[in-house]
Write a protein that binds this DNA or RNA. Sequence first.
DNA 1: AAGGCCATCAACCGCACACTT
DNA 2: AAAGTGTGCGGTTGATGGCCT
Length: 306
Amino acid sequence: MGRAPCCDKANVKKGPWSPEEDTKLKSYIEQHGTGGNWIALPQKIGLKRCGKSCRLRWLNYLRPNIKHGGFSEEEDNIICSLYISIGSRWSIIAAQLPGRTDNDIKNYWNTRLKKKLLGKQRKDQQHTRRGSKQVTKRDIINQDSAAAVTYWPELPQPMHVPPPPPPPPLPFPIQGGQSFNDHASLRRLLTKLGGRFSDDVIVPSVVQPNNQYCFENNISTTTTTTFDDVSMQNGFTAEFGEMVVSCNNPMRVDEGMMYGFYGTTSSSESAATWSDLIGPFIYPPPPMAAGFHGWEEEEPLMPLST
DNA sequence: AAGGCCATCAACCGCACACTT
DNA sequence: AAAGTGTGCGGTTGATGGCCT
């Protein structure tokens, strides 16, 4: 036998709250408090609402000193740091940000902050290129959905983010250093978000046709080569032996840097290994496509500030 | 201009925990 | 100790508005 429902579902109103309902709830709580019983509260004040709904409305919207929107860079950093440490424990994160609710932070994280961080990484990545094809937000979305995994290049340098002010003490110890302005922290966060780095990848012994793969290369030549210089407007296809590999996100390759990117194999019974693929793919570059006259001015992928 | 798609956010739902009896 | 109940939390959904084609 399951537990009894908290209210009569057939006789409670659902959906957005009206100003009248807000006024009723707010004025009652301001005068009498919640009375320690949310379930009984709506009946007391004549609201056809579930007690849980009243509680949520009060906590997330009606109670004093609630802030909505306009998250600052400092707040972003605190949220990111705590997310790295404790994951999606929004109520604890909210407790570190006065005036913020767990619901607000959760929504902000899921809809903006996560994407902002991903965008920041990709923008950093793009800025390492000499020039680039004009890439729209939609291109990135399409590219994401086509890729089996998100694969991040090794970060060339730490992000320079001002350290957040010390938050109130947490009710539990946090493992490790929690600043967000270092490579390791950022890397942990991106990994948590589904990103992968070159040294995380388990190299397949045999490359299967028509599969998405991540590729990597540690550039050790004395020449700086860019895919932008050499690739076609829609990426390019490199052929070696029986294997054809198409790269859909060409990027600049700088000397001495470890890079990762993803692509799709499109033939055959070849048993080329990971390392077989890498060298010819990157260097020497394939010839420039006929009719290609260079890259358009880059459009920013994502706004970095709200 | 219109329809489709996408981002955002308020609100709901179900589960787990805490507290009481 | 066990059962019942209220509360808190996190994941998910649905409505809405704006943008894009």
